[in-house]
Simulated scan of single mutants.
Amino acid sequence: MSMTEAIGRMQSIQSMISELTTRPVDSAKSTAISAAATGSLVDGGGDGSFTQALASALGTSGTGTASLQESLNSLTGISGTTLKGVSAPVATGGAATGNDVVAAAKKYIGVPYVWGGTNPATGMDCSGFTQRVFKDLGVEIPRVVSDQMRQGTPVASLAEAKPGDLLVSFGGNHISIYLGNGKAIDAPVPGQTIQIRDAWEQQSNLTSIRRIVPAGGTS
């Protein structure tokens, strides 16, 4: 487990603990959540490992953000509780499409850029942002651009890109989500926030275009 992954996992756990301090919690379940969190950090598993352990301890099922929410509801005994720092997944009615990616991405407009960041409560970098967007839809992609740019299927050119596609530029130093009509959304640089802008990626500086889920909308 890398340092970035460890920090991200600790932030998620801290967010959960913060939420739980405001709710009455059964002592046995408190022990279960602590064991799940500790076990995940020790064994080096990903967020899915933590969620799975939590779900198992609390008698819920599945992995991902939706399962984490389900587990929190089980822990507090209150449905509809929202875990701080974890956005509710976008309802897709089935398999996610590029349109769902666009909708999920727009929820994070205004979140500050933080290098190495993966938590929308504190800030995200470009690949932390794209990973979070797909995670909200139940789609797991790697943490860093160099790995994300090898996921899904290649798109030949910017002219063929569709909303929801990943635009990788400058040799893998940056990644954004294409919105269509020449627009993109990304976490740009320190001092700025996640924003929609004219896609500054041009065919000349694009390294890769990747389609992770079925295309949505028009280019």
Rank of each mutant, 00 (worst) to 15 (best):
K135V: 00
D26G: 04
N99E: 12
G64E: 10
A53Q: 05
T76A: 06
I141W: 02
V144M: 04
T130F: 05
D43E: 12
A35D: 11
G44I: 03
A103I: 03
A91L: 07
T63V: 15
T122A: 07
I33F: 04
K107M: 10
D125W: 06
V114N: 06
Q69L: 09
E70H: 12
L75K: 08
S87I: 05
S18K: 11
N119R: 02
V133M: 04
L75S: 10
G116N: 04
A96H: 02
A32D: 07
P154M: 01
A57I: 10
T130W: 03
A88H: 11
S49W: 03
T22G: 14
P154G: 01
G85R: 07
M16F: 07
V114M: 07
S61W: 04
Q14I: 11
C126D: 07
A103G: 00
G46A: 11
G44N: 10
I109C: 08
L137S: 12
R23G: 00
M16G: 05
A104T: 01
A66H: 09
V90D: 06
V145T: 15
G80A: 04
A28Q: 05
G117P: 10
L41D: 06
A91G: 02
T31V: 13
P89K: 08
A95C: 01
G64K: 09
S74P: 07
D136G: 13
S146N: 12
M16P: 00
